[in-house]
Design a protein around this nucleic acid. Structure first.
Lengths: 168, 168
DNA sequence: TTTTTCTTTCAGAAATAATTGAAAGTTTAG
DNA sequence: CTAAACTTTCAATTATTTCTGAAAGAAAAA
């Protein structure tokens, strides 16, 4: 199999994988493209390789930098900006977990907790049922939060080395 | 706080939370609505409460049943179908993990593995760099897959009780 | 069988999200 | 300072996803 074909397939697949998870296609594709580029790439390179406009490229590169998945790098003697992706997949995963935890999980948990203050507008039993449903979600959310926290602090091998033992 | 308000807020929030994760808004809202309903609800109920069309309601209910998150139930003496959601959040989480693992993670892993067969079209170093990137993703994917497998088999408390120890 | 009740389908419409590209803004070089 | 090189912005356009509602299909009742 040809290297160039494999890279193209990877970029396309990463794009559609991303959109299944609420990440826009172009952002995921740029990330994939930088992951399989050996050299830092310019905006022009990205526009040309992925056939996207300058505005689109700029916006999504910026968002990737924002997440901490991509860095600007200076290429000696060149004026324009170049970009490269973090290649260590474990670091990438940690960044994504950290960001989604902060941006989505934590606000959701606060919200659920605020809903537990219900105290009128229904029978005792109805209120209790609602509170229990919220409590289930809250507990699960807290556990997920703690698990993510653990992952962020743990070593690369945390998952398998400990969980496999657990299953046995 | 009023019970009815809390329920409405929950439905709305769950809908927008879902769309951040690639789940369509109405599907998430129907799920949320059934989660906070004490009685099984009919299609009519759902249409009315969420202000959605019959087609939309039908389609998303079916998809929820497909995932295993919602069941059809027979209400004594009634002809039409009623629906209720699984209320145990841990069961819900397991179902979602199982389905996404099957639908997305496993196919992605197969695909990445297929890309590791690259063997021409670049310098030795370039090919190696690509293969290493793929290997990183593959390893991470395999570990995630195993962790999910562990979760599916483990008890409710698997996350915290074991991972917190790990962090210390 | 015929009617009634309920469920499913799907083409078109509406809503939402992503993208373009030209213009404005910024930075560096001369 | 002025021009050139590069980056950012954003209104308008395009693409994608979701939703509607009427019609067709199915199942139960009469």
């Amino acid at each position: 199999m040809q290297l160039a074909d494999a890279k193209n397939q990877f970029v396309a697949a990463w794009g559609s994988f991303g959109s299944n998870w609420g990440i826009n296609r172009t952002m995921a594709q740029i990330h994939a493209y930088l992951l399989v580029s050996t050299q830092p790439q310019s905006t022009e390179d990205i526009m040309q390789q992925l056939s996207v406009s300058r505005g689109n490229a700029n916006m999504n590169i910026r968002e990737l930098i924002n997440w901490g998945l991509v860095d600007r790098v200076v290429v000696h003697g060149e004026r324009k900006e170049y970009f490269q992706a973090e290649k260590d997949i474990w670091k990438v995963a940690r960044i994504i977990v950290r960001e989604r935890k902060k941006r989505e999980l934590e606000p959701m948990l606060k919200f659920i907790e605020s809903l537990q203050q219900v105290n009128e507008g229904g029978t005792e039993a109805d209120i209790q049922a609602f509170q229990q449903t919220m409590e289930g979600i809250r507990k699960f959310g807290r556990q997920t939060d703690q698990a993510m926290e653990a992952m962020l602090k743990a070593e690369e091998s945390w998952l398998v080395s400990t969980l496999l033992k657990l299953v046995k």
